[in-house]
């Protein structure tokens, strides 16, 4: 798989597509977001040449922070080669001409949809999340005017009511992705639809985490080394998903696994959702799990 590759920039556009005035506006929003961890800063999101809901918020954030010395990695569902990741990577290769990579450790900016890489991030890296719905209280209160007031007054009891209902009905909290967190002990935040498996990686991460919601016109941030706590109850603590299987390709037992249906009889196998993590392990000599990961009966 490729390490760093460089593409020729299309000179017909401003560097990274957005004009400098727009970038300044977005950067101001980012600075404010970093200063108030977890607070959703409204910004004048622009129409981008990709549809709303397909990562326009993340793209505007990336376009505003990227420089010629940066190396960009784009993932969708953890993979570098899913169509939307390919499309966004190609967009920046064309408009910014910066080097791109699939290697987590080689990237300075990683734009992501729905995952945090398995490889721990380091200081100096920036993780840019694409966010569909930024407001954690949205399903409980549809009105923006009211949710902003709830944030201002820290009226978050209703979110715990939802978790209470889960436990009363199912015996445990039944939220598996986009699991709400409290940032720096203050703002309730939606981590975007990452699996709750990834939530602990946000806590005190040395990397800067930026969240862009283009259609909803909001930017928020978790600065490096900031506490991110997943909501829970003292007697029902937050816990992440576990698998009975190991990755069928690299044998990893510590990564998020995608289920692949392999035949019409319902045979299935499990492989790492993070393709870079998986390939790195395979290259390092890890072998597929003993059972070949095939599990015709399912759990």
């Amino acid at each position: 798989m490729t390490r760093v590759s460089t593409a020729a920039r299309d000179g017909g556009y401003t560097f990274a597509y957005l004009d400098e005035q727009t970038k300044r506006m977005v950067r101001r929003a980012i600075l404010k977001a970093v200063a108030i961890p977890g607070y959703q800063v409204p910004f004048a999101s622009r129409e981008m040449p990709l549809p709303f809901g397909w990562g326009t918020g993340g793209i505007q954030v990336t376009a505003s922070i990227i420089g010629r010395d940066d190396t960009l990695k784009v993932i969708d569902q953890g993979a570098d080669d899913t169509v939307n990741a390919v499309s966004i990577r190609a967009f920046f290769a064309r408009t910014a001409g910066v080097p791109t990579t699939t290697r987590t450790q080689d990237a300075t900016i990683i734009q992501t949809r729905h995952r945090i890489p398995e490889t721990p991030l380091r200081a100096g890296q920036i993780l840019v999340y694409q966010v569909p719905i930024p407001e954690p209280l949205r399903w409980l209160e549809p009105r923006e005017a009211e949710t902003r007031r709830m944030h201002a007054l820290q009226e978050y009891g209703v979110m715990h009511v939802r978790l209470y209902e889960d436990i009363a009905r199912y015996g445990h909290i039944a939220t598996s992705y986009d699991y709400p967190v409290r940032v720096n002990g203050r703002y309730l935040m939606r981590p975007s639809p990452i699996p709750k498996f990834d939530n602990p990686k946000m806590d005190r991460s040395p990397a800067l985490q930026l969240f862009g919601a283009g259609r909803e016109k909001r930017i928020y941030a978790v600065p490096p080394h900031t506490g991110v706590r997943s909501l829970d109850f003292d007697d029902h603590p937050f816990e992440v998903q576990k698998w009975d299987q190991a990755c069928a390709l690299c044998g990893s037992t510590a990564s998020f696994l995608d289920e692949i249906v392999t035949d019409n009889q319902g045979g299935r196998m499990f492989v790492c959702s993070d393709t870079d993590h998986c390939e790195t392990r395979v290259r390092a000599g890890h072998v597929e799990s003993a059972a070949g990961g095939r599990d015709p009966g399912g759990p």
């Binding site: 549809p51 809901g53 397909w54 899913t82 729905h114 992705y177 986009d178 709750k196 498996f197 995608d258």
Partner: peptide, 20 residues
């Protein structure tokens, strides 16, 4: 433009959320 984008983003892969 906003509505069409968000409705059609359901075509994008949701493997991870669906797996969860």
């Amino acid at each position: 433009v906003e509505a069409s984008g968000f409705v059609q983003h359901l075509k994008l892969p949701h493997y991870v959320d669906f797996q969860s």
